[in-house]
Amino acid sequence: MSATLLSIRDLRKEFPVRLGAFGERAATVHALDGFSVDIVEGETLSLVGESGCGKSTTGYCVLNIQRPTSGSVIYAGTDIAKLDDDGMRPFRRDLQIVFQDPYSTLNPRMTIGDALAEPILFHGLAPKAEIRDRLRQLLADVGLSERFANRYPHELSGGQRQRVAIARALACRPRFIVCDEAISALDVSVQAQILNLLLDLQEKYGLTYLFIAHDLAVVRHISDRVGVMYLGRMAELARAEALFARPLHPYTRALLSAVPSTDPRAARNRQRLQGEVPSPLSPPSGCRFHTRCPLARDRCRSEAPALREVAEGQSVACHAVASATETNWENSPA
């Protein structure tokens, strides 16, 4: 078993908002509500769930790009969730992020070479004389030739831009990268190229990924472990094989059944999750999934289920699941 790289405990994030035409009503968005997980060195941990379930907020809070309301993120013996911008700076080079949209993440007036050199010079990782060699190496790592260093972002295709965004994240030789929907905006054939690139880089540099995505088939492909999130809470956390072979939480099952099948005969008979994610402004009481859950009963409406381990490496937050093989519901009246 490898060492824990990041230890996240009870992370919370609330956004105060003003509602009404003149902002006359104050309200709070509960984006992240008690999120805990240990991220192991060298693994890919994926977070999945529908829009608004707090996946991206988790990524931002772990990196302290958005300051968590409470909770801790222990990295190298330090609680980085408590640090201010100056205090974060030495940690930033180890902890990087790749965003979804490669069009808006690169400065349109900077050449690719300048964009890649900036973090290296900022952190003083290489003298100016060695920059050219570092650039060549970085571009080669992401499968681009050296001549791209003189180009501008608008001259590149979407897939090439995402390669540059990855190279920029790699520039400081990080240990941990958050991939926030990093391949969601790409065409299918390019998506496969970038996924393979991420796997290659992980092998080469021993990187740890927090991979945020909504496409379950992609997640299955690249993850060691998968966390399923619903309205700011973890519904299920398991090793990828276990989660896809034996999903336990009713929400995980519903998400899986919504994945389009490439078999035209199977695709026409699927179970459907009805309704939509409730507003995080006023999340449901008890288990937040109870408003859409086919198994919900009284206890679910009043009492939030805790995340507990029900099988080796598989945890689930559901009153209905007693163990990996049995649910409490089969013989009980709903």
Binding site: V188, S189, V190, Q191, A192, Q193, L195, N196, L199, D215, L216, A217, V218, R220, H221, I222, S223, D224, A240, E241, F244, L256, V259, S261, T262
Partner: peptide, 21 residues
Amino acid sequence: GLLASLPTLTDRPMTRLPSIG
């Protein structure tokens, strides 16, 4: 190529996807 590069819920995890260069 398009079909092969689609990740599915049945292929082996952590393998390289065939991609169209």
